[in-house]
Simulated scan of single mutants.
Amino acid sequence: MQRLYLPDGNWVSADEAATRAANRNTDQFADPIPPGERLLVPLVFPTTGTTRPTAVELRSSVFSAGARVDLT
């Protein structure tokens, strides 16, 4: 449920297969993160061209508000 926002307002979802491959073929999001703990893993997004993304949104489910981080 991770999204990368582009300058035109469109967004792309993380590439699940590429993200799994970048994490030694394991699903780093399969288990909950305990309170007070951190998880640092690479996320891979399919992008084209040299346009820099404007924000990334991290969510635990479609119903969660998640966290949005501006990249500009």
Rank of each mutant, 00 (worst) to 15 (best):
T72D: 10
P34E: 03
A22D: 05
G9I: 02
V44N: 01
T54Y: 01
D31H: 09
A18F: 03
A17V: 09
T48D: 12
F63T: 15
E57F: 11
L6D: 06
D27Q: 11
T72R: 11
A21N: 10
L40T: 15
F63S: 13
G9Y: 02
G9H: 06
A21R: 08
F29Q: 03
W11D: 06
T51E: 09
D70A: 15
M1N: 08
D70T: 12
T26A: 11
S13E: 14
P42E: 05
P32Y: 07
V69A: 11
P34L: 03
R52Q: 15
N23L: 02
D8T: 02
T54G: 01
R3E: 14
V41M: 04
Q2T: 08
S64V: 00
R52A: 15
E16M: 09
M1I: 07
L4N: 04
N25E: 13
A14S: 15
E57M: 11
Q28T: 13
V41K: 09
R3F: 08
S64T: 11
V62W: 08
P32W: 06
N10R: 10
A18K: 09
Q28R: 10
Y5S: 12
D70M: 14
F63L: 11
V44W: 02
A14F: 14
D27K: 06
N25R: 08
S61N: 04
T48L: 14
A30Y: 00
P32K: 07
A55V: 11
P34K: 00
R38A: 14
G49Q: 00
L71W: 01
D70F: 09
T26M: 10
R59S: 07
P34G: 01
A30P: 03
L4R: 00
A18Q: 13
A22V: 04
V41Y: 03
L4K: 07
G66D: 03
E16Y: 14
S64N: 02
G36I: 10
E37C: 03
P32D: 06
E57D: 11
N10L: 03
A14C: 09
D15Y: 05
A67T: 15
V44L: 07
D70L: 15
L43S: 03
L43G: 02
S64P: 06
P7Y: 00
V69Q: 13
M1C: 06
A17K: 14
P42C: 00
D70R: 12
T47R: 10
F45G: 01
P46G: 04
L39T: 04
T26H: 04
T47K: 09
A14M: 14
Q28W: 10
F45I: 02
L71D: 00
E16S: 12
E57N: 07
R59K: 14
E57I: 08
G9M: 02
P46E: 01
R68N: 05
A65Y: 05
S64L: 03
L58V: 14
F63H: 12
A65M: 08
R68D: 06
V56G: 05
L71G: 05
V56H: 01
L40Q: 12
A30K: 05
R52M: 15
I33G: 04
S60F: 05
P34Y: 00
T54I: 10
D31Y: 11
P7F: 04
S60D: 09
T51I: 10
P53A: 00
G49F: 02
T50R: 13
S64F: 00
L6Y: 02
P7G: 03
S60W: 07
V62Q: 11
T48Y: 09
W11F: 15
V62M: 13
T47C: 08
P34W: 00
V41Q: 07
Y5R: 11
T72E: 07
